[in-house]
Design a protein around this nucleic acid. Structure first.
Lengths: 200, 200
DNA sequence: AAGCGAACTATACACTTGTAGAATGAGCGA
DNA sequence: TCGCTCATTCTACAAGTGTATAGTTCGCTT
């Protein structure tokens, strides 16, 4: 399970090694999930021995926590603002979940690690710290938190069905056909500021 | 990890034992995912030894395949028909994903097993065989398959954020507040038959 | 060049995993 | 009551898990 070749041997550099481990961890956890990777795999991809993980991070769990933080922090869970938020985010989501796309990201990490309760807890906290807060600010109005989390839910669901499970219609759908549908979904969660939240 | 007490000892009855194993497997895979349970756990909950799993199902993987089929087959992934489909399905989804609800179901099984590629493949096939086909028939019009799978995606996403990750706003939301939002989501995927699919 | 602290590795342990093969024991027809 | 069949269990194995302890070697400082 050596997803990528070990980088050139570093001259002994603690900071660089730590970073290499963290990078390898983000990639590996994203591809295989928390329980799907062993510390030996991660260390191997970083070009070191498994023990260094404990030395620099304390445990696999703490490494995961840092990897989650890295993956969730700067990522563009939403793109665009105001009226363009829905369409822009939908386009980004659709293009990133395309079968050939290779820019993975936090949703994949979340989906593939969700089975582990401790991992789920760690990810919940990271969402609160990063994506959730950010999204809530963008979606004004009553119940912004709930609508923000629903928007995350929709994105996670699309990632799941289109990229992880690989449901045929969704996986093979063309971007130009899929984006409008997803845009509609997002818009129903983010009505233009003057509107009120639609009630059923 | 003995989630439920072993049932009373059966008199030697191959069919009943097989069924007991299958029931225990559905429960265990739903709660912990494919990689999160061992055959010894499942067998223990069924009141037998791990070896019987191989005897009756061939392997853990084949047991999982049967468990997936059982879990996906008769479940009500959608409820109601026509104009009531969106609101009815939303109500069901919201009540089932409530924090205290204890009727689990196929979405949890899917989310918690998604990390394993082989499990994902098995589940994709089961969806095509059951839920996907059923839903597509209900959602007429062009692109029904894609919209059906998007509807599954939304449901999976809500399950994920509300029940698995436990994102605070969604987890604590009252049903009467959440159901209308989800209904809106579903409606945008299932416009009343006379309408055309909304374009962005 | 010597010494020392830090970066890194080797070995090992206790445990769990899925599954194979042989042994056991219950229940039923005779 | 015997004896056979098959449901069920026992024992075992090879592989893999996370991590602790102890050892090795690099490279900077003096």
């Amino acid at each position: 399970m050596s997803d990528r070749p070990a980088p050139d041997r570093r001259r002994r550099d603690a900071a660089a090694t730590r970073q290499a481990i963290l990078d390898a961890a983000v990639a590996a956890f994203t591809r295989h999930g928390y329980d799907g990777v062993g510390v030996r795999d991660i260390a191997g991809n970083a070009g070191v021995t498994a023990m260094l993980i404990n030395r620099y991070f304390g445990s696999k769990e703490q490494l995961f926590a840092e990897a989650v933080d890295v993956s969730f922090a700067p990522r563009t869970v939403i793109t665009g603002t105001g009226r363009e938020l829905a369409a822009s985010t939908a386009r980004t989501l659709v293009s990133r979940t395309a079968p050939d796309a290779e820019e993975l990201g936090p949703f994949l990490l979340m989906l593939r690690s969700a089975a582990n309760p401790r991992a789920a807890e760690i990810m919940r906290e990271a969402i609160g710290r990063h994506a959730g807060r950010h999204l809530t600010e963008e979606l004004s109005g009553p119940g912004a938190e709930v609508r923000a989390e629903l928007m995350l839910a929709v994105q996670a669901g699309v990632w799941l069905m289109r990229h992880v499970i690989g449901t045929p219609a969704l996986a093979e759908a063309h971007s130009e056909d899929l984006a409008p549908l997803v845009t509609t979904l997002f818009r129903s969660l983010n009505p233009t500021p003057a509107d009120t939240v639609p009630q059923a």
